[in-house]
Simulated scan of single mutants.
Amino acid sequence: MKKYIAALSTTALISVAPHALASSTDLTVTGTITPVACTPSLSNGGIVDNGKISAKDLKPTLHTLVGKHPLQLTVTCDAPAQFALNPIDNQAGTGSTRTWFGLGLTDAGEKLGWFSVEIKNTIADGVVAHAIDSDDDGKTWKRTWVSSPGYLLSTGSATDPSTPIAVQALTMDFEVATRIARADSLTLTDEVTMNGSATFEMKYL
């Protein structure tokens, strides 16, 4: 990606007129239009259904794992491209832990729990690769086994996890684990609906 630097030039004017010198500043708008288009998708329409869980089966003083479900992420591009996915928690601030994605609130305003996304396998153009993430908007990357809100998710080679590689066809096998907060922190006199939601936004690097 080309980077454009706005040049600042200064001039001096000596005037015999008693008027003040005018000053100004420039606004420069830059960007790149890429000819490559990539489309992400999730198996099963991106839906994880944990069914109905009885309140009496929840642990009173510990979080309770109520389900683990496989899900596959695929990204298909017109041509090899460097890209990342930005995981956005659509229920931000509702997770019982800040690291993972929230499940929404109870009617009493209590944080219901969270779900995590573990990455089991990564295949880039038919070759084993590694998932990598960045918490500084792509300046640095490291290998990861999970996807978390606030961390860009990309793909590195099996030998160098520090740099995103260009990929045309990517698959990542996810395991989505759902956990409910300790039962003694929740009001469970009526049915409570889990409402976890995350968006994986495409970003071209």
Rank of each mutant, 00 (worst) to 15 (best):
His63Ile: 08
His69Met: 10
Thr32His: 02
Pro60Phe: 10
Ile47Trp: 00
His69Lys: 11
Ser43Asn: 08
Val66Asn: 09
Asp49Tyr: 13
Leu65Trp: 00
Asp57Thr: 15
Leu71Lys: 09
Val36Ala: 08
Asp57Met: 10
Gly51Thr: 06
Leu62Gln: 15
Ser43Asp: 02
Leu58Gln: 07
Ile47Gly: 00
Leu42Trp: 00
Ile47Asp: 00
Val66Asp: 05
Leu73Ala: 11
Gly67Gln: 04
Ser43Gly: 14
Ile33His: 04
Pro40Leu: 01
Ser54Ile: 01
Leu42Ile: 05
Val66Ser: 10
Lys56Asp: 10
Pro40Asn: 05
Gly46Phe: 02
Thr34Met: 07
Thr61Ser: 13
Leu71Thr: 06
His69Asp: 09
Leu62Gly: 06
Lys59His: 11
Val66Gly: 11
Leu58Thr: 10
Leu62Thr: 13
His63Gly: 07
Lys59Glu: 05
Lys52Val: 15
Gly67His: 06
Lys68Asn: 10
Pro60Trp: 11
Gly51Leu: 01
Pro70Cys: 11
Gly67Phe: 01
Gly46Tyr: 01
Leu42Thr: 03
Gly51Val: 03
Asn44Ile: 03
Val66Lys: 08
Cys38Ala: 13
Thr61Pro: 07
Gly67Ile: 07
Leu73Tyr: 04
Lys52Gly: 04
Asn44Gln: 14
Ala55Cys: 04
Leu58Lys: 11
Val48Trp: 00
Ile33Asp: 02
Gly51Arg: 03
Asn44Ser: 15
Thr64Ser: 15
Thr34Ser: 14
Thr39Gln: 11
Asp49Ala: 15
Ser41His: 06
Ile53Met: 04
Asn50Asp: 15
Gly51Trp: 01
Ile33Tyr: 05
Ile33Lys: 11
His69Tyr: 10
Pro40Lys: 04
Lys52Leu: 12
Gly46Arg: 04
Asn50Trp: 04
His63Cys: 02
Gly46Thr: 06
Val36Phe: 01
Gly51Lys: 03
Pro60Lys: 15
Lys68Arg: 15
Ile33Ala: 13
Thr32Ser: 12
Ile33Ser: 10
Pro35Ser: 09
Gly46Asn: 07
Leu42Gly: 01
Cys38Glu: 03
Pro40Met: 03
Val48Thr: 09
Ala55Ile: 09
Asp57Leu: 10
Gln72Ala: 10
Thr32Lys: 08
Asn50Arg: 09
Ser54Asn: 13
His69Glu: 07
Thr39Phe: 06
Thr34His: 14
Asn44Met: 06
Lys59Met: 09
Val36Met: 00
Asp57Ala: 12
Leu62Lys: 15
Ser43Ala: 11
Ile53Arg: 12
Leu65Ser: 12
Lys59Arg: 14
Gly51Tyr: 00
Ala37His: 08
Gly45Leu: 01
Ile53Trp: 03
Gly46Trp: 00
Ser41Asn: 12
Leu71Tyr: 03
Thr64Glu: 08
Lys56Ile: 13
Pro60Tyr: 11
Pro70Arg: 09
Gly67Val: 05
Asn44Asp: 14
Thr34Asp: 13
Asp57Val: 04
Ile33Gly: 06
Thr34Glu: 07
Gly45Thr: 07
Val66Cys: 10
Lys56Cys: 03
Cys38Phe: 04
Pro60Ala: 11
Ala55Trp: 03
Ser43Ile: 05
Pro35Lys: 07
Ile47Arg: 09
Gly45Pro: 04
Thr64Gln: 09
Pro35Thr: 13
Asp57Trp: 09
Ile53Phe: 02
Gly67Arg: 06
Asn44Phe: 01
Val48Leu: 01
Leu73Asn: 07
Gly45Phe: 01
Ile53Glu: 02
